[in-house]
């Protein structure tokens, strides 16, 4: 293992400590677990709260997106491990301003169980909760089993769109409906070139040869569609778009936002090389690209690789996407 750290068991707490020290105007810790992050200034204006959570190792997902127009609170666990139900309950308590709380997170068994359990724990405190699960990774299950798909970078769009809806003052049902619409409108696929190491495991999550890539690999190294020799940027981009567009066909006149996201180690240079093909293909399909996002939005630590996310927009979603938001990783004035 070659990582900049002190003790593996302190990885997450020290990371949060540093993150909050660097951005005290944005973040604060809540409760006694040390792993629940809230907005530094909770505006108690009775808006709907939005919480997310999951394992560490994906910054800016999840905690990075706590901020105005985005999330209210997050519970995070150890690297690639679900936070406890009690931590999630704390995040819900922190986010609650009396108008109910939306739980918005990726479809992973452990997170689902713990967020459900957290719901049981806050039930007695008169906090109303709803749930929307992100299941945007098209490589993780066929479209007929969409509900079994895992959640990946598409959750960033869901945070943004529902966050803007909550900021507008919509009620819990309204915010939940927007989150569900956002979740339904997103499709993602990833491709990995190298592995990553969970600090407490000390060795790479999976092995992959220097000249190989894996199409469709999940953000924790879940097996993908195929593994083979590394292809060119244009070939990779074309295949990823083929898969996305066959899962969610676009028609002439459609508006779509697209995220070209680094899984961690892949530099922006390579993302822009890929973006040429993304733009070309989406325009060939007749779609208009709205606010493309190119950069590190949802990562797997030092994994090299890329994910593409398409988010189909209507008037309502386009307006919410362009609404102001403010966190250290994403600002729209």
């Amino acid at each position: 293992m070659k990582k900049i750290l002190n003790k593996p068991e302190n990885y997450v707490n020290e990371m949060l400590d540093g993150m909050i020290s660097a951005h005290p105007e944005y973040y604060n810790l809540f409760g006694d677990s040390g792993k629940v992050v809230t907005r530094a200034k909770a505006d108690k204006n009775k808006k709907v709260g939005i919480v997310s959570g999951g394992g560490s190792g994906h910054l800016p997902v999840f905690t990075g997106y706590v901020g105005r127009g985005l999330l209210d609170a997050c519970a995070i666990g150890d690297v690639f491990a679900s936070p406890s139900a009690e931590q999630m309950a704390d995040a819900i308590r922190a986010a609650d301003q009396g108008a109910g709380v939306l739980r918005l997170y990726g479809n992973y068994g452990g997170d689902v169980m713990n967020f459900d359990m957290a719901g049981d724990l806050v039930e007695f405190e008169d906090i109303t909760c709803t749930t929307v699960l992100l299941a945007d990774d098209i490589a993780s299950a066929p479209i007929e089993e969409r509900e079994n798909r895992r959640g990946v970078a598409g959750m960033v769009y869901a945070f943004k769109l529902s966050g803007a809806a909550a900021e507008e003052g919509r009620d819990l049902d309204g915010v939940t409906a927007i989150a569900q619409k956002a979740a339904n409108s997103c499709r993602s696929i990833g491709a990995a070139l190298s592995s990553c190491t969970v600090p407490q495991a000390g060795k790479p999550t999976f092995e992959i040869a220097d000249d190989e890539m894996e199409m469709g690999m999940g953000i924790h190294g879940e097996p993908g569609v195929w593994r083979g020799k590394l292809k060119t940027a244009d070939q990779i981009a074309n295949e990823m778009l083929d898969r996305l567009l066959s899962d969610m066909p676009l028609q002439s006149g459609d508006r779509v936002s697209v995220m070209v996201n680094s899984l961690g180690a892949t530099p922006p240079e390579e993302l822009y090389i890929l973006y040429r093909i993304v733009k070309q293909r989406l325009e060939e399909a007749g779609a208009t690209i709205i606010m493309p996002l190119v950069g590190r939005y949802a990562t797997s630590m030092e994994m090299s690789g890329v994910s593409f996310t398409l988010c189909k927009l209507d008037d309502e979603l386009e307006k919410l996407l362009k609404a102001p938001c403010d966190c250290p990783f994403w600002k729209i004035a």
């Binding site: 666990g77 679900s82 406890s84 009690e86 931590q87 452990g110 169980m113 713990n114 359990m117 049981d120």
Partner: peptide
């Protein structure tokens, strides 16, 4: 159940705590 739940977010622990509750 609550003590167990606080100690970990593992699915297995949560399942056991669910049964206990």
């Amino acid at each position: 159940a609550k003590s167990f739940t606080k100690s970990s977010g593992s699915s297995y622990g949560t399942l056991l705590a669910t049964g206990l509750m």
